[in-house]
Design a protein around this nucleic acid. Structure first.
Lengths: 236, 236
DNA sequence: TGTAGGAATATTGTTGACAATTTTACGGAC
DNA sequence: GTCCGTAAAATTGTCAACAATATTCCTACA
């Protein structure tokens, strides 16, 4: 990792569509855009965030940028060092394991709540999607389609759980793990196994068995963690 | 709740010990002090935070106060409304239930990790503390002692879990629930029941039974939730 | 070539001023 | 007493300037 970290200016030059002359976005707009860029590695770990660059790009005051930095730091997405600026945090392996442990219980909870809260037939479209269409996609190595389906599933699960508190926690973790999860999915055999596990989980949800669905989701995440353990040298 | 919300100035006049002429505290000092005040209701729900007052009290720039506000907002502790200022958030009943659900799985995880990570004999002092000394305290309605013991237990559990990620999540939740939990503990019969449950949990930890310890902690929190359900009109 | 030192440049941290918005206070009418 | 309008005061949001600190660049020397 001797590569020179990209600055925000370098990345943000591709994002002029977000440039506002007079800022009429709500205050949370800025922090959410930055969250997204950090989460999808447009601003990769280690990159420096320049107050002036962001201020110029978004047409907001430096003061507002600094406030957003305050928020991003509380979310663990950046680290600010006095007089030296803000850097996007890196995930080290021990943290990844911590995140997996936490994801396991929280996503398990989300699946349970979603199963309890929603009528069983509301999962049928996902059961269908994870049936033949995704089987075909995985067979043809159309992993983008699979990853999209996983994202859809996640969103539905979070919405179905009907807990703002849980959603906020899950989002906070997802911001930090999104790219990692994506890298794990594309590893050999992982998509096939994941499809199988998600199908079983969806079947349990469809049957209204919240406890079983939770356990299956938790097992899925433990499997993901085991994959990370095996391949961590290549993933981080 | 027609009482006029206290302003930060009113509360902060009692805190001049924190006043610094030249600020030589690390940047996170301010947000941590404010977190603590919010968590223990020195800045109670609904109270307004005035930038100038805080700036003067702590001898820091208004800009730094605003940055801290950015962080507090991301933690869900305050809500900022453009041009109107920052208000300490209130917990409504549905949120409390959400927090209980999340606490259950996360504190359960913490107990499990702590049991797995620490040698069984390291819990002996807590086993002893929750034996005769706390029995006596509860018998004599010395609830302050009991609450302190719970705080000690919590701290030990979090440290023992050895997960920064989990600790951060737990702290974030604790900031929002600390006073509520305290109010629940003092309700009739709750301390006695809680002592019994924590003893059983500590016995499981002492025996190195992580799974059982986790289940007992989870049950303890579910009991706490049921108590809240019963008394919520008096507690919120 | 590598290192050290100094200057120039860049960036962060703070401050004070002012614009914009909201809140409070006051007086008058009903 | 309540309501409304107006003015004054308070507070937030932003800006520009400048101080403080860090980084980068250049030169000289071993």
């Amino acid at each position: 990792m001797s590569k020179r970290p990209k600055t925000a200016a370098a990345s943000s030059s591709a994002k002029s569509a977000t440039r506002k002359k007079a800022d009429d976005n709500p205050p949370e707009f800025l922090i959410n855009v930055l969250r997204d860029r950090i989460a999808n590695h447009d601003l990769p770990p280690g990159s420096k965030l320049r107050e002036n660059s962001i201020s110029e790009e978004f047409g907001v005051s430096r003061a507002r940028v600094r406030e957003a930095f305050g928020g991003l730091e509380e979310r663990g997405l950046i680290e600010r060092i006095p007089n030296r600026g803000a850097v996007v945090t890196r995930l080290e392996a021990p943290q990844v394991f911590e995140l997996f442990a936490v994801r396991e219980v929280l996503e398990g909870l989300a699946v349970r709540l979603a199963t309890e809260n929603q009528p069983p037939e509301s999962w049928q479209d996902l059961v269908d999607l994870f049936d033949k269409p995704l089987e075909q996609a995985v067979n043809e190595n159309d992993l983008e389609f699979y990853i999209e389906a996983l994202a859809t599933l996640r969103t539905r699960m979070v919405i179905g759980a009907e807990s703002q508190t849980l959603e906020s926690l899950l989002d906070s973790i997802y911001d930090r793990t999104r790219v990692l999860i994506r890298r794990l999915v594309i590893l050999p055999g992982r998509a096939r196994q994941g499809l199988k596990e998600h199908r079983a989980m969806l079947a349990a949800m469809r049957a209204g068995d919240a406890e079983k669905a939770e356990q299956l989701k938790r097992a899925n995440i433990r499997g993901s963690r085991a994959t990370f353990d095996k391949f961590q040298k290549f993933i981080l």
